[in-house]
Structure formats: structure tokens, C-alpha cells
Computed example of a mutant assay.
Amino acid sequence: MKKISLITTGGTIASKEMSKGLLDSGALSGDELASLCQLPDGFDIKVIDLFQKPSMHINFDMMTAVKEAIEKELEDKSVTGVVVTHGTDSLEETAYFLDLTTNDSRPIVVTGSQRSPQEVGTDVYSNLRNSIFVAANELLHDVGVLVVFNERIYSARYVKKVHASNLQGFESFGYGYLGIIDNDLVSVYQKPIYHESYEIDGNKIPRVEIVKCYTGSDGLFIDAAVQNGVQGIVLEGVGRGQVTPYMLDSIQNALDKGVTVVMTTSAEEGKVYPAYGYVGSAHDLRSRGVILGEDYDSKKARIKLAVLLANGKRDIEQAFKL
């Protein structure tokens, strides 16, 4: 019999209806959630009730607690895989954090739901059931953390929430999904060829902020971040990685003060690249010491930069090329 550890953290998947049609996110305990679902037969499922939080209440300390709970379960070599239930709003961030900070060949699956357990057409039961089958599948060893949603299997690095309410709430633009689950049968079509992980045990995750670029934007938020002692800033530029010229003095000041600055793009697909020579271009920024963030979106780049800084890794620019 395959053993699956089910770690619950709250979210819509564990919500109850309140008055006036509002939901109390994370109201159900792990055992309550498991009791509602028709979990598949033939599995030994252990429930670990870690948090009962809306996912926008999750922070780095809680992500680290999830990581530690996973590692504790995987100390048992008879455990086949781990499933983590999580709210969808920050699911992609926690999943990628776990992807960067865990290093076990067995599947770690993160899932959630767009509808509560009581709603018509809820996706709670199918997402949880499918995640258990994925966590037990040997084809998905050595691929890093996975996200299972609406019968699809995604890599944590590229998955993102793309719809506020639709059951097809997650996608990986440009990269697609790794496989599907159809009537309890897992089919895998592609796998990542590389998985990176970094030790952060005992290290405080530093503060890293995201600053978005738009027409006329200046250095107001960059200056505020620096004044409040951030260790890293992720710039969400446009196109190939451009910002306005009005941000440059503040960017340079941040670099001069030892803040690590990473450039990303707001485009859904494509990499940051030094394609132009004008002031504020990716080429100009790189010459000043800004790290080009390749094809990472700003939220994933923030997670990665924070983990790299906590790890003490020196060659951050090379790490972003992986």
C-alpha cells in the first residue's frame, strides 16, 4: 500500500460558507477536509493539519514551516509522496519556494481549489484526489515540486494563476503542462531536465520587494524599499527588460548601497535580453550591475532572489540563467 502524507494549510479548498454568501477561507481542519473527500482506495493517507490560513496570509516563515513539515514526512522512507493543500492566490509562490528549497526524488504536489467544498461544481474533490495519484506515481520522481489543478500537472517554476474564479485557474504560458490525470490514470508527456535546490536551514529569508514599471514611473518605490532596508529588489520592466529613465538614479543608488537588483519583464512569454542601447534598456541596466532575470516573472524572481540571498550564494547572476 502506498503511503501519502497530506499537509493542509487552509485556503478555499478548506473553506466554509459564512453569512451573506461569504467564505471563511481555511476554516476546515485537515481531518475535516479529508473526511469530506472521497479519497482513493488503496492508499495509506496521513493528514498533517499545519495551518488554517487564507493564502494571502502566508509569509516566508510559514513557507519554511511547510518545507520543514514536508522534510519531516520524507524522513520516513516508506512515504511515497507528499500532497500540500493551499489557497490559490499565493499557491504559485509557495510551490516555487518549496521547489527551490527541497531536494528529494519523491513527488511533492501542491493543489487547491477555485470553489469551496459546498459549492455546486466544486473542484475540491477532484483536485485532491488527482494530487494523491500524482504523488504516488513513479514517473514523476526527480522533477521538483508539482502543481495539480483541473486534471493537469504543472511544474512549479512556470505555473501561475491566470483566472480569478474559473476552474481552469492555472497555466504555464509558453511551456505547457507536464501531463494529465484522466479517470485516475496519470499520463506524463514531458519533464523538466534540471532541478535546482538551495540549503536555507536556520537562515532568515531576507526582504525582497517588487517594483513595477509603467509610463512615467520614477524611483519613489525603489527609494522607499532601500530606506526600509531591503536586500533585494525585483524590477518588473516591459518588453525585453526596459524601465523609464526617471527610475535610473534610484536604481543606481540601490546598487551603490549593496542592494541586489534583478530585472524581469511584464510580458507573459520571452526573456529579458540586452537588445537596445538606450538609457533605461536592459543593456544599460546590466552595465550598471542589474542582473537580468531571463524568463522569470516578477513573483517567481522575488522568491528565487530571496532564497539565493538566504543561501548566501554569491553568483546570483549565474543562478538566474538556470
Rank of each mutant, 00 (worst) to 15 (best):
T9G: 08
T9H: 01
G10V: 05
G11E: 00
A14I: 06
A14E: 02
S15Y: 03
G21T: 06
G21V: 10
L22T: 01
G26K: 04
G26D: 04
L28W: 01
D31L: 01
E32I: 00
S35D: 04
Q38D: 10
Q38L: 06
P40D: 09
I48C: 07
Q52A: 04
S55E: 02
S55P: 02
I58R: 00
F60C: 01
A65I: 01
A69I: 08
A69Y: 08
K72P: 01
K72A: 07
K77D: 10
V79W: 01
T80C: 10
T85A: 07
G87T: 11
T102C: 15
S105Y: 07
V109R: 14
Q114N: 12
R115P: 07
S116M: 06
V120M: 15
V120L: 13
G121A: 13
D123P: 07
S126K: 15
N127S: 10
S131Q: 11
F133W: 15
V134L: 11
A135R: 14
H141P: 08
V143R: 12
L146T: 14
L146Y: 03
V148W: 04
F149W: 10
N150R: 02
R152Q: 13
R152K: 15
I153F: 05
I153M: 10
A156I: 05
H163M: 07
H163V: 00
L167T: 06
G169H: 09
E171K: 08
S172M: 02
S172E: 09
F173S: 14
G174V: 08
I180M: 07
D182S: 11
D184P: 00
V188P: 12
P192F: 07
Y194V: 10
Y194D: 13
E196I: 09
D201R: 08
N203L: 06
V208N: 05
I210N: 04
V211T: 06
Y214F: 08
A225Y: 11
N228F: 02
G229A: 09
G232Y: 09
V234G: 14
V234C: 14
G237E: 08
V238Q: 13
G241M: 08
P245W: 03
S250C: 09
I251Y: 06
N253V: 12
N253T: 14
D256G: 04
D256E: 15
K257V: 00
K257H: 07
V259N: 09
T264C: 15
T265K: 05
A267G: 02
E268W: 01
K271V: 13
Y273S: 15
P274L: 11
Y276K: 14
L285M: 15
R286P: 02
R288P: 09
G289T: 09
V290G: 09
I291W: 12
G293A: 14
G293M: 10
D295G: 13
K300P: 00
A301M: 10
R302P: 11
K304I: 12
K304L: 11
L305Q: 06
L308S: 08
A310F: 04
A310M: 02
E317Y: 00
A319Y: 03
A319H: 01
